[in-house]
Design a protein around this nucleic acid. Structure first.
Length: 796
RNA sequence: GGGCCCGUGGUCUAGUGGUAUGACGCAACCUUUACAAGGUUGAGGUCGCCGGUUCGAUUCCGGCUGGGCCCACCA
């Protein structure tokens, strides 16, 4: 029968919403289970990765609910980022610079409601058990307050400080950018060989792609084992066009003698290596680029130019003066700002930092306590922590974002912090209430905003109402689960741990589950430009939401998954199968009272299937407890389809058709029992189909309004019986053999058989199975013989 | 360059110290009182390659190779 899955799903989604099935009950006495869900950017669309990750976490949420927890399953929108600001600018045809920051934040909050709504509808369409009343946004008032409060708390602890620091800078956007905003770009350039003179008349040749940085040259580096340059080490080299400035030649193991000439000239700052070298050598910093990307007076003849023009100019000048020995075209990878594709520059600027390098060992020790699923993902965090070289730069020179709650005294430079109870504030709009210690009341507000991760790393504190409800916070923090992608372990997971360790002195969660990415069928990243994007909506339209969820349940957690549409097809088939089997069970059991199972009236196949059912419950439960969702559904699916539907149902049909005797009643009770328990086992995965079955056929068994309020089934150990399963296997094996014979004879499976000859190893065992086999395969008479292996012959 | 993961029939995958699970696809058969978006059956794999441990390895160890990811990236 064709079943309209879409109508069914819409019906139950409406029902859950109306009955508030997933509402978190703050007053409940049950133990809470809280999930620190990842807030997606408000782009307006839900992509396949979202659908996958949120469904995976939903399996856990639904299981925990059935396992008796008071589940806290919130949702957040991330609108505290540049992409959001740009989206709103474009949509409204405005520029953020036209507004005061507070004003623009309001515009963003109002201007993204439409996208939020669209996304919410999309997320709801996959049947997530989210409590939408717990919604938060990373730029709304509670988030701003939490972030600023976090800053004040860190300040109190002496954990934040300000200093001039090398900063990655986009000369086109005139802002500092984070490492995460970098992109690699292949660029054609020229590799320029330049010969310098040493003060004692020698000549040393270097190669560079950045000749325009020559005025900022502070040293020349060579490898200590490089014999060619041994004689230059410690000597001074004259830098052209700098009024006779001289720099020293240093030994440095980072230099590759094979690359270029084997000698490197070191400028402040050409790339990230230069920054490291500066810190190591304690050389002076010569800054020649302004924040707007132009060269300053220290650049001498290059003053006023921009990078590209400066490069052209200096090459001309160097050639004229005879310094250039060679130029070769080169294609190399440069770091560009992902938004505008401009190559980044490194400048110094005053920045706020969180001091955390001293605690590296502590982070690694704490990460050890955290439960990682899969466990190997922890190593990514270890790697990251071990590789940390700088403190956390939390300031961004951006208009849109959450501002630092800080003013500076114009007279004495004193840092004035906002009062906790006034948060959130915008220091550009408000002023400190008291005078400065120096007596002045002339203040200037900090213009910078927080790095978005400074706020995102507080989602547990935002969720648990750290700044607004102490009692609730005490009860809820730390949270239980953080589900997230493996790409942001270093950023989101790590920074969240750092914050919680500073603020609360403990880990923010008990468990972290790390999911992989959804790739296209060939294993490539899905992207608009490649045209290989698969939309979840289309898949739901084609196969149903439960089918999409089934697909999401299959992969092992942590691995990247090539998207295979056929998995949705098998999902849909499984759902159809379950609904049909349920209909059958109803049909043949509706006139039988759903009584308790009487062990005395059970037939061998009944005992076998009940044993297998309870074993399956055990397996599925164990897998869920280990957060291995794919192993929680797999045994259930295989049990239901390959054992229950393919064999058991066929084996009991003749017992349950028509009027039922004791044996028929027993079979009916077993059918119901298996269907009911299986429905509960699949409820976290295919919640719509499970609800449909429960509401249609098991209304009386429901304790609450919904199947999703039922208790997770417990395995009945007394029904697990190795011998019964062996008997069941023998029945199934003989039935399978007979099916083979019937197929070979081109007969339908219900074709009557006059006589069957069966060779089996254990005649005694077969005696018990004989009846069932006869009934199932419509065999009149069986002649059993002892044989080495199972063999069947049929006479029609 | 450092770290991590993966390599099982055409495709995707489960799994285990004794040659292997399921799905999709393919072929044949079956209108059988749940299901034709079905059922039954079948073909198809030296479990990446080479060594080692072992009575025996797809499973354990080492190396190699291919793919992927994260980090550091070459002036």
């Amino acid at each position: 029968m064709t079943i309209d899955l879409h109508a069914m799903e819409a019906k139950w989604q409406g029902f859950w919403k109306k009955e508030k099935i997933y509402k978190f009950d703050a007053k409940s006495k049950k133990k809470a289970y809280s999930i620190d869900t990842p807030p997606p950017t408000v782009s307006g669309t839900m992509h396949m990765g979202h659908a996958f990750a949120f469904t995976q976490q939903d399996f856990i949420a639904r299981y925990k609910k059935m396992a008796g927890f008071n589940v806290f399953h919130p949702f957040g929108f991330d609108n505290n980022g540049l992409p959001t600001a740009l989206m709103v600018e474009k949509k409204k045809g405005i520029k953020q610079s036209m507004f005061e920051r507070d004003e623009f934040i309001k515009i963003v909050l109002g201007g993204t409601l439409e996208e939020e709504k669209r996304m919410r509808t999309a997320f709801e369409s996959i049947g997530l058990s989210i409590d939408w009343s717990l919604l938060y946004r990373t730029i709304d008032k509670p988030a701003r307050k939490t972030a600023q409060y976090s800053f004040l708390d860190l300040h109190r602890q002496g954990r934040v400080y300000q200093k001039d620091a090398p900063t990655m800078w986009c000369p086109s956007c005139a802002t500092a950018i984070a490492q995460a905003e970098l992109q690699d770009k292949e660029e054609k350039s020229s590799f320029v060989y330049i010969q310098f003179e040493t003060t004692d008349g020698g000549k040393i040749e270097i190669a560079t792609t950045r000749p325009e940085l020559m005025p900022a040259c502070v040293a020349i580096h060579v490898h200590p084992d490089d014999k060619r340059y041994k004689k230059f080490v410690g000597k001074e080299v004259k830098i052209p066009f700098t009024g006779g400035r001289k720099v020293k030649v240093f030994e440095n193991r980072d230099v590759d003698p094979e690359f270029g000439t084997g000698a490197v000239y070191h400028c402040t700052f050409g790339d990230l290596d230069d920054v490291e070298w500066i810190l190591e050598t304690n050389l002076p910093i010569i800054e020649i680029i302004n924040k707007d990307g132009t060269f300053n007076e220290k650049a001498g003849i290059l003053k006023g130019l921009r990078t590209k023009e400066a490069r052209k100019r200096i090459i001309e000048e160097l050639e004229k003066a005879g310094y250039i020995t060679k130029q070769e075209p080169i294609t190399h990878v440069v770091n560009v700002h992902e938004r505008c594709k401009t190559p980044i520059e490194i400048l110094t600027a005053k920045q706020w930092f969180v001091k955390y390098l001293d605690l590296k060992e502590d982070y690694i020790a704490k990460a050890e306590i955290l439960q990682w699923v899969p466990p190997y993902m922890k190593k990514r965090l270890d790697n990251w922590v071990n590789g940390l070289k700088w403190d956390w730069n939390i300031s961004r020179q951006r208009h849109y974002g959450i501002p630092f709650p800080v003013w500076y005294c114009r007279k004495c430079g004193e840092v004035i912090l906002a009062d906790e109870k006034d948060l959130p504030i915008d220091p550009l709009k408000s002023k400190p209430k008291k005078k400065c210690r120096c007596g002045s009341s002339d203040f200037v507000g900090e213009k910078d905003t927080f790095d978005t991760w400074f706020t995102s790393s507080l989602t547990p504190q935002i969720n648990c109402k750290w700044v607004s409800d102490k009692k609730f916070f005490e009860k809820m923090f730390p949270m239980d689960l953080r589900p997230q992608g493996h790409d942001i372990i270093a950023l989101w997971a790590f920074n969240t741990m750092v914050k919680a360790l500073f603020h609360q002195g403990k880990l923010p969660w008990e468990t972290i589950t790390v999911n992989g990415w959804i790739l296209d069928p060939k294993g490539k990243k899905m992207s608009k430009s490649l045209g290989n994007v698969v939309k979840p909506e289309d898949m739901i339209q084609k196969y149903s939401a439960d089918a999409l969820r089934y697909w999401a349940s299959l992969p092992v957690l942590g691995e990247d998954i090539p998207f295979m549409e056929k998995e949705l097809l098998s999902g849909k088939k499984f759902i159809t199968k379950m609904l049909n089997a349920a209909r059958f069970v109803e049909m043949v059991t509706k006139d039988v009272k759903a009584g308790k199972i009487d062990k005395k009236t059970l037939m061998p196949e009944d005992r076998a299937i009940l044993s297998r059912l309870n074993r399956t419950v055990k397996e599925s439960t164990d897998a869920f407890e280990r957060f291995e969702v794919s192993k929680a559904i797999n045994p259930t699916r295989n049990f239901f389809w390959l054992e229950f539907a393919d064999f058991y149902i066929e084996e009991v049909k003749t017992r349950v058709y028509g009027k039922k005797n004791a044996s028929g009643k027993a079979a009916a009770a077993v059918l119901q029992e298996v269907l009911w328990k299986t429905t509960l086992l699949v409820a976290p995965f295919i919640p719509h189909a499970a609800e449909e079955i429960a509401q249609t056929y098991f209304k009386k068994r429901l304790k609450g309004k919904s199947v999703h309020e039922e208790a997770w089934p417990k395995a009945d150990e007394s029904l697990i019986d190795e011998k019964a399963e062996e008997a069941g296997q023998l029945i199934n094996a003989v039935v399978a053999e007979m099916r083979k014979e019937k197929t070979a004879a081109k007969k339908p499976l219900n074709a009557p058989v006059k006589k069957a000859t069966v060779e089996v190893e254990d005649l005694k065992k077969f005696k018990e199975a004989e009846d069932t086999v006869k009934r199932t395969m419509a065999v009149e008479k069986i002649e059993a013989k002892k044989g080495k292996e199972l063999k069947v012959e049929l006479e029609f």
